[in-house]
Structures are given as C-alpha cells and as structure tokens.
Computed example of a mutant assay.
Amino acid sequence: MRPDILAWCDSLSHFGYVAVAIDYRIGFNPASGAGGFGPAHGMKRAAWRAMQDCNSALDFLKENYLDYRIDTNQIFLLGNSAGSITAINTVFIGDDERYEETLEVASGANNADIGDLNANSFFPNHTNRVAGVVGLWGATMNFDWFDEGEQVPMLFIHGDDDNIVPYDEGMAFNFGEGTDINIYLYGSQKLHEYFETMEWEHEYHLYPDEPHAFYSCGDMNMIELEKENFPCEQWEPVFNQVVTWLSLHNNYYLYSKIEKEEENLDFSIFPNPVSENLTISSKNSIIGECTIFDISGRQVMQINPQKTTCSFDISELKSGVYFLTINGNSVQKFVKQ
C-alpha cells in the first residue's frame, strides 16, 4: 500500500476514526476503444467501475456497522486524485445518469454493459449517502449530475500548477482538447464556484505553484517513495486542514481524554468559535494550569491564572480546532477562526 494511504489510515485512527482504504479498480483498457471508440470511451468506463466499487464499499460498511462499531450517519469519503474524483461524483451520480459508454455499445467483452452502480454489491439495499467528502486534487466530469438535495459538505484542496487533474478546467493529463485520449474535467476551482452559486456548504484551499499530489515529495504516484522519506513538508498543512474540517463536521469529540459533558459543567469557555480573546469561567473551582493543544496533539500555549475567571489572547494561533485542558483533567474543544 502507498505510504500516504497508510499515513491517512494510521493518523485518522489516532483521532478516533475507523479508517478504511478502498481498493477500487483503476485505469482503463485501451482495447475498449475498439470498433471506432477512442480511449476516452475506456476512461469513462473506468470511472464508472470506480464508482461501482465505492458504492460496494459503502454498502459493506453500512451492512456490517456493528462489527466495525461505526455510525453509518458519520461516514466520510476522502480521496486523492482518481480517488477524489470517485468520491465527489459517487455522492451525486445515479443509475439514470450513466455514461452511454458503460452500456453495451458494441460486440465483445470490452464493450459489454458493465452494470448499474450496485452491480458488484452484495448489499445493494443501502444508499450512497455520506456525511461529507474530502477531495484532494479532485474534479467532476459533469455538473449535470449535481442535483439539489444530494449535496453534502465538501472540502476541496488543490495546487494551481496541477497538470494531471486541472485545478480549474481542462483535459486530464493536460492533453489538448483536440485529442481523443481522455475526458474533460472541472477541478476544485470550478467545484468551489459551483458550490458558491448553489450556496452549498464547502471549504476550498488553493496552494499556489503546487503540482499534482504536492505532498508526495515529487513522486506523483508515490510508487518508488520509501516510507522513511514520507511525509514531506506539505503533508502537515494538508493533514491539519483535513482533520480540522472533519472535526467540525462530525458529531463526536476526537480526543480520548474528553470527559462526559456533565462532568465538564464546572468550567465553561466562550466565545466558541473565537478569534481573539478566549474566556474561561468556573462556578466553584480555581482555574489553575491551562494548556492548549492543536489538532495534532502539540502543545501551543500554557497559562496558570489561579482565578475563577480569566481571559487570554489567542489571536496568534492559526485557524483550526484546539483542545484546552484545565487543571490537568477537564478538556474543552474550541475553534479558532
């Protein structure tokens, strides 16, 4: 398995997530261009197969949620490149929106009907509904698939020097429009603009001068990348943006020491979210040592007010999710805007 996939699964599991890598079918068969059909024909069939596999994985997890101890209403899809394209479009596409190229368009196995979205699922009675999608350098092929009511919160991250999946729009792999070797894509910028127009919930981060899969140390596919050389410097900001976004969009505290809400009533913090001054107030206890940790668990600030109420400036902290420990045991989560 690629080291970045391992890193995502391992890191997210430390934040309380059940992390699953989907081994979806990828690539296309140039032979499917037989009979006068170009390679783009094969690419569309490959994209449909990937969405079939994503649906099958969702069906499996929802059917076996007790075994994996997951909340089926809190499943998120996170994809990288082709995986991102698959995740984004799986949310919206239905069997009535299939590419014509996925039907039987000519004789021969390479051009046979490859079935509907549930063709490979053992548990086809579940929906493809998820709680949200993280799209890393992703895209869509068709905005006609996007219908009101199907949308979920999404996070888009892309580099503007991506010549594999265009951040704006264009042919995949940077081929010209006159070639019949690929499909036209609408990248994260166009997704952002569409979501803005529709007033759908989303977040968008564009990295200037960064190429495709820019946290991969220059190896796009990371096939030759040794584990000891990963992560690269861009892994940390991308990871923090993803985990912060996930923390804001799920129903659970992602910190093992957080106690039950009724046990934290002695301390309150406000405002939350906060941009400058955070206030801690206690009904009965002296506020002693207070420590703030960022989403990766690093200590970023510490105070020791010895009062029942105190305020302190956090304006220098970066935007994101933080955890505040009070007197060494009570833990509160807050968001720095």
Rank of each mutant, 00 (worst) to 15 (best):
M1G: 09
M1K: 15
A7G: 08
W8H: 09
D10K: 05
D10W: 00
A21M: 07
A21I: 12
F28M: 03
G33I: 04
R45Y: 13
W48V: 11
Q52M: 09
D59Q: 15
D59G: 09
F60C: 07
L61H: 09
L66K: 11
I70V: 06
I75T: 08
N80V: 12
A82N: 07
S84L: 07
I85F: 01
F92C: 05
G94W: 06
D95A: 10
R98D: 03
T102H: 01
L103A: 11
G108N: 07
L117A: 10
H126D: 09
R129C: 14
V130Q: 03
A139G: 05
M141S: 13
F143Q: 02
E150L: 10
I157V: 00
D162N: 12
G176R: 15
E177I: 09
T179M: 04
N182L: 04
Y184P: 05
H192E: 03
E196K: 06
M198L: 05
A213G: 10
C217N: 11
G218P: 15
D219P: 02
M220I: 11
M222E: 06
C232R: 11
Q234W: 05
E236I: 13
P237Y: 04
V238G: 02
V238Q: 05
T244Q: 01
L248D: 14
Y252C: 10
K257E: 12
K257D: 12
I258G: 15
E262C: 08
N264F: 00
D266I: 11
F270W: 02
N272C: 06
P273L: 04
E276M: 01
L278N: 02
T279Q: 02
N284K: 07
G288A: 11
E289Q: 12
G297M: 00
Q299C: 13
Q302W: 11
Q306R: 09
S311T: 04
F312M: 09
S315W: 10
L317V: 15
K318A: 09
S319H: 03
N327A: 00
